[in-house]
Write a protein that binds this DNA or RNA. Structure first.
Lengths: 215, 215
DNA sequence: ACCTGAACACCGTTCAAGT
DNA sequence: ACCTGAACACCGTTCAAGT
């Protein structure tokens, strides 16, 4: 007995949406492209999914599910770094996630990240009055980087290497007016060769260092 | 001699776009609405402005021009706080700016903020090797908050008070599963009454404290 | 209950034609 | 040089009609 094409389901729709987003970029996800790929009508998708925003949220949540489940390795500081780097790497692989995280404030996924960060801040022994601010600072920093990385990916062809992106940006900085932009011109060379994952981590560490003063 | 309606110009277009964005939200800016308001054809606008992205960038830059010009008050730490709060207040007044800043990575406006932060980091006496990371951390945190505030504004009617937004969000957190979200439930009450501008500043101070260790 | 696909109400952008 | 406005090529979403 040969099974025909599997019947439509929320899962299959979300899965196909992820493939489309990964391969064609954020603009690649349309209900027309999606229904073509699933060999169905556009309206059929709406039976399983309320609208495009919900679909994007579901896709984000599906990709991030594995990332957030990973067990914390060492102490709470290590756990914060692990969550942060997990998100960074996921966004590196699927840049559209960065846009989603920075666009939808109280999405379940974001709340989950926030909760996780908050628990580690508690475990760090931060004073109760300072916990909320500390977790919020970590979250906002992570979401800021997420948004910037997604923005960078958007200007590039899907699949451009990180080195190329940095090279282009470095060239822009080098061509700035030296009188007005002494700092950016000064670091333009560093930008070309730096590891932005490491810079991201450096930022997390900076915040963790600041937090440790409220212990 | 009575002057008729002033002739179209890039300035008038940008000005009208800002009015539209402020009054009708991010979705309110369309070339149709804009050309209706300017009593001209949609095509006329394209003679002065390349496309919608350029228009949004110009509108952002116009609003932020005054904010970035303000002289630094006290020392470099004060200057960092001034830049950060200036942006925060501008986004509070014009939430769509938050979206722009977190969407367009190397926009001139963002580079200007970055430069300004970098100069203060230098003035702080931060070690040369640590300056880039420090300025980047500050920028990304600020852009993260910018994006979140814009996202919050987007879900609300244009002009909803900050207290209402916080109240709603607080209600969401209070209704979360206590087993899974102990931290967020714990701070839900704080969220309702807190001053998010102060929390934003607390985050800046956390990063500044971390940075001071690389002096 | 689930799917079809045409139709609706929009977009941003272009472009021949005007002045 | 600058403006007009219809037209083009898209969108997300709806919905009567089918199975």
């Amino acid at each position: 007995m040969k099974t025909g094409r599997p019947s439509l389901s929320r899962e299959r729709i979300v899965e196909a949406a992820i493939v489309l987003l990964d391969s064609a970029g954020e603009g690649g996800l349309t209900f027309r492209a999606l229904s073509a790929r699933l060999r169905t009508g556009a309206g059929a998708i709406y039976w399983h999914v309320a609208n495009k925003d919900e679909l994007l949220a579901a896709a984000t949540s599906a990709v991030l599910a594995g990332v957030m489940d990973a067990e914390a390795p060492g102490g709470p500081e290590e756990a914060v770094r692990a969550v942060a780097l997990g998100l960074f790497d996921a966004i590196d692989e699927h840049p559209w996630i960065g846009t989603q995280l920075s666009r939808l404030a109280s999405q379940t996924t974001t709340l989950r990240v926030f909760e996780r960060l908050g628990q580690q801040v508690r475990a760090l022994g931060v004073l109760v009055e300072a916990q909320f601010d500390a977790a919020s600072a970590l979250l906002n920093y992570i979401l800021g980087v997420a948004g910037q990385n997604a923005a960078n990916a958007r200007t590039q062809e899907p699949g451009t290497s990180r080195a190329d992106v940095l090279g282009e940006e470095s060239a822009v900085w080098s061509s700035l007016d030296p009188g007005e932009f002494p700092f950016l011109r000064g670091v333009a060379a560093q930008l070309r060769d730096h590891d932005d994952r490491e810079q991201f981590l450096a930022g997390v560490n900076l915040i963790l260092a600041g937090i440790s003063r409220h212990t």
